[in-house]
Design a protein around this nucleic acid. Structure first.
Lengths: 141, 141
DNA sequence: GCTAAGTCACTAACTAGCTTAGCTATATTT
DNA sequence: AAATATAGCTAAGCTAGTTAGTGACTTAGC
């Protein structure tokens, strides 16, 4: 179904442009999204979520800090750890860009009748099932 | 809607694993997908479609050639040009992995009643509209 | 209280994959 | 015929990841 592919392609376009607009790369954007949804995280947490090494996590946080998107804070109880705290203005900018998209999709869902909503939900559940099956059939590293 | 995000996340997982399974990176996979759908392309065509420089296109084709996925052929009429031709066995492997996914989604669509199909189509059209609007509202480089 | 083992964040050095600049060969335009 | 543009490539450089290793710190065990 071309629409699904179109949605995927648009997602990539949005990601690239949003990254550019915030002066980060796509990994940095992903980090900001994690921080937006979870609040402050340790560098190790970020490394795990982004599936990168702790060395890379350090560099990613360096770039985000230099761009003014996060600040590093000492952990309250563990002196090995550093907390990466999102800067409110940056989160506001991120949400300023993504808010209309999120609200728009919410609006679409709310406008559906219960029958239509069930149809869409079932269809997407089927797509998730097929995609999961494909992912599981591929060797994973 | 979490399902849509789940579809997006799974798409990324599949892309990574498929790349690994074929011994290429995601840019190489993308090149292979273009070659699968369009047939042989010039190195410049690939550069344009992948939005990279011609120097990068040369390297990408080098890697695909070394991995046995493509061959370079002289252009029939323009000696400056080189045609990048997909190797049938590679396309067969690519389709062998993706075929079940594509057919599975086709099957889902075919299983829908006309009413449900219209609901899904309208919903996805709405999502495309919203995503396009967001993409257009972001500065493009 | 001390020691051993493990964890965290970082640095150094390296690699992969892109870029720009520039080149040669070729095609097109004037 | 000369000037200009294009294609694909190489060389050098940059970005952003990796692994290996380090010092500071925490936890577990005695």
């Amino acid at each position: 179904m071309e629409r699904l592919q179109e949605v995927g392609a648009l997602t990539r376009v949005i990601e690239k442009r949003l990254s550019g607009a915030l002066g980060v790369n796509t990994t940095g954007l992903s980090a900001m999204e994690h921080l937006a949804s979870e609040g402050p995280l340790t560098a190790k947490d970020l490394a795990d979520r982004l599936r990168v090494s702790t060395a890379a996590s350090t560099h990613i946080v360096d770039r985000l800090e230099n761009a003014g998107h996060v600040v590093r804070r000492p952990h309250a109880t563990d002196r090995r750890k550093v907390l990466v705290e999102p800067v409110q203005e940056s989160m506001a900018r991120l949400f300023g860009h993504l808010g209309p998209l999120l609200h728009g999709v919410e609006g679409l869902v709310e406008a559906l009748s219960p029958e239509d909503r069930a149809a869409v939900e079932n269809f997407l559940a089927g797509v998730v099932w097929i995609y999961t099956d494909t992912a599981d059939s591929l060797p994973q590293d």
